[in-house]
């Protein structure tokens, strides 16, 4: 097999550096008091960015046929239904 690779080694290394940096950032931020729920929001935002980097580059979704992206998105979409409907109940109880 000598087909061209989907992603270059250089790009993998950049994504890796991004993931390590974001880990340092999320750990650092967690020790600062941002007030209210901002700590949780910051932690989750960074986690989603990291997950996005892994999915798009390490898992090749950015360079794969759209079908793969749809399946990946479907998993997240159904999970979102679970979380949103749960919250719409719990957060609105008297």
């Amino acid at each position: 097999m000598t087909s061209p690779a989907a992603v270059s080694v250089k790009l993998y290394l950049w994504v890796f550096l991004g993931l390590i940096s974001l880990t340092a950032v999320t750990t650092g931020i967690s020790f600062m008091d941002l007030g209210e729920n901002w700590n949780a929001l910051a932690a989750l935002t960074i986690a989603f960015i990291k997950a996005g980097l892994v999915v798009l580059y390490f898992m090749h979704v950015r360079f794969s046929p759209p079908l793969i992206g749809i399946v990946a998105g479907a998993g997240v979409f159904w999970l979102a239904i679970l979380l949103v409907l749960l919250l719409s109940d719990v957060l609105t109880r008297g």
């Binding site: 998993g75 159904w78 749960l86």
Partner: peptide
């Protein structure tokens, strides 16, 4: 691509599997 697609469908079920625990965590943390 078919092999890859099969694994992605399995991973979508895994998202549901772990998602249930994350949902539980979310409610109790709230």
């Amino acid at each position: 691509q078919a092999a890859s697609l099969g694994m992605w469908i399995f991973l979508a079920t895994e998202v549901m599997f772990f998602g249930g625990m994350f949902a539980g965590y979310m409610i109790y943390r709230w």
